[in-house]
Design a protein around this nucleic acid. Structure first.
Length: 232
RNA sequence: CUACUGAUGA
C-alpha cells in the first residue's frame, strides 16, 4: 500500500485521489509520506490551493508535518510565484521547531530569483549561513543561474571563479548554467572556452550542456561549429 | 520499503 504512493506521482492525479479514498475505505491509514506525495503532485500541476487544503488537514488526521512536507509545499508556492506564502511557511517551520534544510533554502532561492528578488536571495543566503547550513553545488548552481537570469552574468562569473578557487565541488550543471548565461549575453567565446574547460576538470558535458552550446552557436550563425560538436 | 531542491531546447 505504500508502493501506491509512487504511482500517484507519475501522471494521474485523479487516479491518485481515488486510490487514496480506496485505501481509507479499506482501513489503511495514509501517513505523512502519502500526503506529501499528493501535495507534490498537486503543486506541480498548479493546483496549489488543493495542495494547501491537504496540508492543512494533515495534522487533524494524525499526520505530523515534517521538513519534507514543508519543503514540498514551499516548492509549490515558489513554482507558482507566491513568495509571500512560501516565506510565511518558512517562518512557520521555525516556530514549530522544524529544522530547515539545504533543500528548504535552495527552494526559496529558486523562487526568489525567479521573481527577480536578487537582494532577498542574498540576504537569505547570509541567514542560511548563520543557521549553520553549508552551501553545496546545488546552491551554487542556483546562484549562478539566478544571477545570470537577472542580468548579472559578470557576478555569476565572479562567483563561479570564487567557488573554484576555494576548491569547492562544481558539477556539470553549474557549468551548463554559466555557459547558457554567457551565450545569451553574446559572450560566445567565453562560453566556448568554458565548454572545453569541462574536460580539463574531469567533467563530461551531458545532453543539456550540448543543447545549450549548440543553441548558442546556431543563434550566432556558427552552424558549422555546432555541427562539428555533434560529430564527436 | 516510499515523499521535497538546481541547467537548455522543442
Amino acid at each position: 500500500s505504500v508502493l501506491i504512493d509512487e504511482l500517484c506521482k507519475s501522471g494521474k492525479l485523479d487516479d491518485a485521489n481515488r486510490l487514496l479514498e480506496l485505501m481509507i475505505e479499506r482501513g489503511v491509514n495514509p501517513d505523512t509520506v502519502t500526503y506529501t506525495t499528493l501535495i507534490d503532485g498537486l503543486c506541480l500541476t498548479g493546483k496549489i490551493n488543493q495542495a494547501r487544503e491537504i496540508f492543512d488537514s494533515m495534522e487533524s488526521k494524525g499526520c505530523r508535518h515534517n521538513v519534507v512536507s514543508y519543503n514540498t509545499l514551499i516548492n509549490g508556492y515558489c513554482k507558482n510565484q507566491n513568495i509571500d506564502e512560501a516565506t510565511s511557511l518558512y517562518q512557520e517551520m521555525h516556530s514549530k521547531g522544524i529544522k530547515r534544510t539545504i533543500v528548504t533554502y535552495n527552494t526559496l532561492f529558486v523562487g526568489l530569483f525567479k521573481m527577480g528578488m536578487v537582494e532577498s536571495a542574498l540576504n537569505l543566503f547570509a541567514e542560511m549561513q548563520l543557521n549553520g547550513v553549508v552551501p553545496d553545488s546545488v546552491i551554487y548552481t542556483t546562484f549562478v543561474d539566478g544571477l545570470c537570469k537577472n542580468g548579472h552574468v559578470l557576478k555569476a562569473v565572479e562567483l563561479f571563479h570564487a567557488i573554484r578557487d576555494c576548491e569547492l565541488e562544481l558539477d556539470v550543471v553549474t557549468y551548463s548554467c554559466l555557459i547558457d548565461g554567457l551565450c545569451k549575453t553574446g559572450e560566445l567565446d567565453t562560453a566556448w572556452e568554458l565548454f572545453h574547460g569541462l574536460d580539463h576538470v574531469g567533467l563530461k558535458p551531458n545532453v543539456v550542456t550540448y543543447n545549450i552550446m549548440i543553441h548558442g552557436l546556431c543563434k550566432e550563425g556558427q552552424t558549422d561549429k555546432a555541427n562539428n560538436l555533434l560529430l564527436d
